[in-house]
């Protein structure tokens, strides 16, 4: 059987190993999250730009549709029934 000092030494070494495992795991996880967040940020920025361009296009299209509606209504009034 081990004497007490050897046992304490083994326990302390085990504690160090467990702490090292925790630190490595934390580092891996944070690295993964950082990469993913960068990727998502880029994608979201691109999509936001595209969405803004689409919004502008939609506004233009709506204006054109309104103009055409007005012209159609005018023509319908002018056309003899």
């Amino acid at each position: 059987m081990l004497d007490s000092s050897t046992l304490y030494l083994v326990l302390i070494m085990a504690g160090f190993i467990l702490v090292a495992v925790i630190v490595i795991h934390q580092h891996n996880c944070s690295d993964l999250v950082r990469r993913k967040s960068n990727e998502v940020e880029n994608a979201v920025t691109q999509l936001t730009q595209k969405t803004q361009a689409l919004e502008q296009a939609i506004v233009t299209l709506k204006t054109e549709i309104e103009e055409i509606d007005e012209q159609t209504v005018l023509l319908q009034f002018e056309t003899p029934s």
């Binding site: 994608a43 969405t51 939609i58 709506k62 549709i65």
Partner: peptide, 15 residues
């Protein structure tokens, strides 16, 4: 973000 973009795209197509 993706779903918003797709919604806008579909809306534009319909318009």
């Amino acid at each position: 973000a993706q779903s918003k973009y797709e919604f806008m795209l579909n809306h534009k197509r319909e318009l």
